[in-house]
């Protein structure tokens, strides 16, 4: 058996080569370093954690609770039969067991339709509408919290960098990083990514070792996304050249892309009065075209 580089115990991961105990220390130190370096969280702050019931968000909730942060779980039920209903059961069980308050907000109650029905009735790609609606729910329900922490990891971030490069989407690119958004705006709760430097595999190992009862199912809509192709490509490169994903986000950080729109005055949607870059926000545009009930 391969041995840990710090002791004589069996290794559980080979990049870096560490046993269970040393891997947990390595992982938690890395997250703590990210939190401190980018000033993501305050010890006495009120922290909303966006949870899906999957391994990333559940591991984040577990770890922040272990670090004694004041956490509150915020979940979105998009209405994806056979997937989200199951992951949310896990999430609820976990929160009850660990005495973490939680709230679930559904697309159905907020936008009048489940995602499954939206896709069926409108012949629309699920990921775009899902992203807009999820964002709106999290923006609205995280108000009153100091931060909204998400389980986004290094793989997600490296994929987002490459996707937006491929699309020449400078505006979205400039919002990436351990703190989302181009600059702090009072209209939005600050979104932070404590797992910014943790790979998907490391989080999986962490959740496995800690027996975090996360759901490892994949969203059934993922195969339709451009992200899947980028993910496959990045995993192939990482396999041949360890550290490639980290290099993508480190290079991105070093470039620290800015746009000229940073100082624009915040506009608000004429229908829902939520912050928006356009006269009518994307959520209201969808609601209008999808003929759903009022938001």
């Amino acid at each position: 058996m391969m041995k840990c580089e710090k002791c004589l115990n069996n290794a559980v991961i080979s990049n870096p080569v560490l046993c269970k105990t040393h891997f947990i220390s390595y992982f938690e130190e890395k997250v703590n370093f990210t939190i401190k370096k980018f000033k993501l969280l305050k010890k006495k702050g009120k922290i909303a954690v966006a949870v899906s019931g999957g391994k990333d968000s559940m591991s984040l909730l577990y770890l922040l609770k272990k670090f004694s942060y004041n956490v509150y779980a915020l979940a979105v039920d998009e209405g994806i039969l056979g997937y989200r209903d199951r992951t949310l059961i896990n999430m609820k069980k976990f929160c009850i067991k660990n005495k973490i308050p939680y709230k679930i907000i559904s697309f159905k109650e907020k936008f009048g339709q489940r995602l499954d029905d939206i896709v069926k009735n409108n012949k629309i790609l699920p990921c775009s509408v899902c992203g807009v609606f999820r964002r709106r729910i999290l923006d609205v329900h995280s108000r009153g919290f100091d931060v909204l922490a998400t389980g986004h990891n290094m793989d997600d971030e490296a994929q987002a960098v490459l996707m937006n490069l491929a699309k020449n989407n400078i505006s979205l690119l400039s919002r990436l990083g351990p703190i989302s958004g181009k600059k702090r705006k009072k209209e939005f709760t600050m979104r932070v990514k404590p797992f910014y430097f943790c790979s998907e595999k490391e989080i999986m190992v962490y959740s496995f070792i800690n027996r975090i009862n996360a759901d490892f199912e994949e969203c059934p809509n993922v195969p339709m996304s451009f992200r899947l192709r980028i993910r496959g490509m990045l995993n192939d490169i990482e396999h041949e050249r360890y550290g490639a994903k980290r290099n993508v986000i480190d290079t991105f950080q070093a470039l620290s892309i800015k746009t000229t729109k940073d100082d624009e005055k915040q506009k608000f949607c004429i229908y829902c009065h939520e912050p928006s870059s356009k006269e009518i926000c994307s959520a209201c545009m969808y609601v209008k075209t999808l003929k759903t009930t009022t938001i």
Binding site: M2, A11, V12, S14, K201, M204, V205, F208, N235, H239
Partner: peptide, 17 residues
């Protein structure tokens, strides 16, 4: 691809080596 999986034997994680 090793990047996309973890391998478990008798309930314990093992490495690709």
């Amino acid at each position: 691809n090793n990047e996309t999986v973890i391998v478990v034997r008798d309930g314990e994680l093992i490495t690709e080596e």
